[in-house]
């Protein structure tokens, strides 16, 4: 459903991605790992359509359509969800209104009836229980004054409510204690379904103890330099990223 072909992309005029090719099929979980600065977050943001992130060449297709032609809100309504590495605070906008507007935008797009307040509350309260969030968070402004862990849980809550077709988690696991990490992992595992896919962007292997990926890709210097199964993540955990970068350095660049 997602096809990335020889993608070159730049942030603020600087080329970061240098020829990414990746296919994500329905039901798969892919982990994208790599050292800092390898382009992991750029890839995640390019998929979400963030301004300032520009495709220079190559293609991204979503169920056969050119994804790059869609504005971010269209991508969201089409079922692409990015859990942000640094979720922003939005004073004055409560989680309740925000989640309801987001869900109804997606439902409307799919030709489903919008949920009214009662049905929405019932749905969101159930999802909050799943994620382990207190209902009080519904009435607080989006992420405002939330701890790091609470912000990440809030991303997982949004993901659970919106039930995306493709969820991309941009280092959602970083900086979390073990309880929050488990909550994030459980949220991802609950989402797993034959028609849904997940891309986990992560620096560390530990999330992959709880969410078992089908494929692991290592990104270095803007390219996928190695792909493999779960064992590749374990190898990276033991050996670090240094050996990969050295291998890349010795390969001739095309």
């Amino acid at each position: 459903m997602l096809e990335i072909r020889d993608l070159y992309a730049a942030v603020d005029g600087k080329t970061i991605l240098k020829g990414i090719t990746l296919t994500v099929n329905p039901g798969e979980v892919h982990a994208i790992m790599g050292p800092n600065g390898s382009g992991k977050s750029t890839l995640a943001n390019i998929l979400a359509g963030r301004e300032g992130y520009r495709v220079e060449s190559g293609s991204i297709t979503w169920f056969g359509r050119d994804l790059t032609a869609l504005p971010p809100e269209e991508r969201a309504r089409e079922g692409i969800f990015l859990a942000f590495q640094y979720p922003v605070e939005i004073p004055g906008v409560s989680n309740l209104y925000f989640l309801k507007a987001a869900l109804n935008a997606r439902r409307k797009h799919r030709g489903e009836p919008e949920l009214d307040a009662m049905d929405f509350l019932a749905l969101v309260k159930g999802k909050m229980a799943d994620v382990g969030m207190d209902e009080a968070f519904l009435y607080r402004a989006v992420n405002e004054g939330f701890s790091g862990g609470e912000k990440k849980r809030n991303e997982i809550l949004q993901m659970a409510v919106l039930e995306p077709t493709l969820a991309i988690l941009d280092e959602t696991d970083s900086g979390l204690d073990i309880d929050a990490l488990k909550a994030v992992a459980a949220g991802v595992n609950r989402l797993r379904a034959p028609d849904r896919s997940i891309v986990l962007v992560t620096h560390y292997q530990r999330l992959l103890d709880h969410v078992v990926p089908d494929q692991v890709h290592v990104l270095a210097q803007g390219r996928i330099v190695k792909s493999g199964g779960r064992e590749l993540a374990l190898e990276l955990e033991q050996r670090g990223y240094g050996w990969i970068e050295q291998e890349v350095a010795h390969e001739p660049l095309l």
């Binding site: 504005p71 809100e73 969800f81 939005i90 987001a102 935008a105 949004q158």
Partner: peptide
């Protein structure tokens, strides 16, 4: 962008933030 990335269109996102 955060609001748009959740499905709100640009005008709705700006209106919500302005009102907030």
């Amino acid at each position: 962008f955060y609001l748009r990335s959740r499905g709100l269109d640009d005008a709705a996102a700006r209106a919500a933030l302005t009102y907030a």
